[in-house]
Computed example of a mutant assay.
Amino acid sequence: MSATVTTPAKKRTGAQSPPPPPSVRAPRRGDGSRRLRRWLGNGLVQAFLLLVGLIWITPVAGLLLSSLRSAKDSASSGWWTALTDPGQLSFANYAALLDNAGMTRAFWNTVLISVPTTVLVVVIAALAGYAFAWLEFPGRDWLFLLVVALLVVPVQVGLLPVAKLFGQLGLFGTIPGVVLFHVAYGLPFAIFLLRNYFAEMPREMLEAARMDGGGEWRIFTQLVLPVGRPAIASLAIFQFLWVWNDMLVALLFADSSAQPLTVELQSQVRQFGSNIDVLAPGAFLSLVVPVVVFLAFQRHFVQGVMAGSVK
């Protein structure tokens, strides 16, 4: 006699079947409108950025086209007419600009002022920023507080006293005098910026380097500077742009043989008024050099960010 085994029937419970995977799940109400709002939002942002870019690039394009047109064409019609008549464009104005002794001398004076100032500010600020961040010495906090306090001192306050001091030292009207003034007034912000950036570095990283026998100079040059390259590149960009575009300090401290491009362009406007064939190429040259420098340092800035992100 064989026995039959019956399995008990499963009790019916209130548990529901698992939800279908997302690939087969029915679309919910509102998904289409949400995607539409997201697409419209991105489109509006892109349209706004495009509009801002066009507004910014229009005067630059106008200056470029004006620098390539003759004085006769500039006096008779607007720069936008060159878009439909490219025959107006030529490099004769730039050839004449290179033959202008005043403009070429002013251009090289600007280079001799901007480059040494940027290098000195970056080097001194990097050394001082590392010292304020990681070295212990008496009065460190009070000295850094004095540096921060100098940030609120406007440049106009020191023009006359420094001019009197430079006159006594024989530096008034010279390129070294202009460089020293820019270095002195650029250091407080530079030290403040680099000190705060260096202070964010992990203490364990520097202590490990010291335990491996590294001195302070070696740690600074081989560890701190590579990691701090993004901040240093940003500081170099800002400092170069500030000095290159400055006219107030150079107008007061530089004589006719040491005046930069900004002062020379201002004097050209005052003397002749309508010599657009000289002013337009000179102004565009003054504009394009900082843009090229910015793009070059921007590449190093991105490389520094990527290198510093890999531990």
Rank of each mutant, 00 (worst) to 15 (best):
Val121Asn: 04
Pro116Ala: 09
Arg38Trp: 08
Leu150Asn: 15
Ala184Leu: 10
Gly228Met: 10
Pro59Ser: 05
Met211Ser: 13
Leu98Asp: 03
Thr118Gln: 02
Trp134Arg: 15
Arg195Phe: 04
Phe107Met: 07
Leu295Pro: 01
Val293Phe: 03
Asn245Phe: 11
Val148Ser: 01
Ser70Lys: 02
Gly102Met: 02
Gln271Ala: 14
Met205Tyr: 11
Tyr197Gly: 00
Phe132Glu: 00
Gly228Lys: 05
Asp141Trp: 07
Pro59Trp: 08
Val292Asp: 00
Met211Glu: 12
Leu49Arg: 13
Ser66Asp: 12
Ser114Ile: 02
Ser67Lys: 03
Asp31Ala: 14
Ser286Trp: 05
Val157Pro: 10
Ala133Lys: 13
Leu143Arg: 08
Phe91Trp: 14
His300Gln: 14
Ala95Val: 13
Leu36Trp: 09
Ala95Tyr: 06
Lys164Ala: 13
Asn196Lys: 03
Ala163Gln: 07
Ala92Thr: 14
Trp244Ser: 00
Gly186Leu: 08
Ser77Met: 13
Ala126Ser: 15
Gly41Ile: 02
Met306Cys: 05
Ala3Gly: 05
Gly87Ala: 15
Leu279Ala: 05
Ala61Gly: 13
Leu50His: 08
His182Met: 05
Ser77Tyr: 06
Ile232Tyr: 04
Val24Ser: 14
Gln266Leu: 03
Pro19Val: 13
Leu135Val: 09
Leu171Val: 08
Met103Trp: 03
Val293Asp: 02
Lys72Thr: 13
Asp73Lys: 07
Thr84Ala: 14
Phe192Leu: 10
Arg105Met: 04
Val155Arg: 13
Gly139Met: 04
Ala71Asp: 12
Leu65Arg: 03
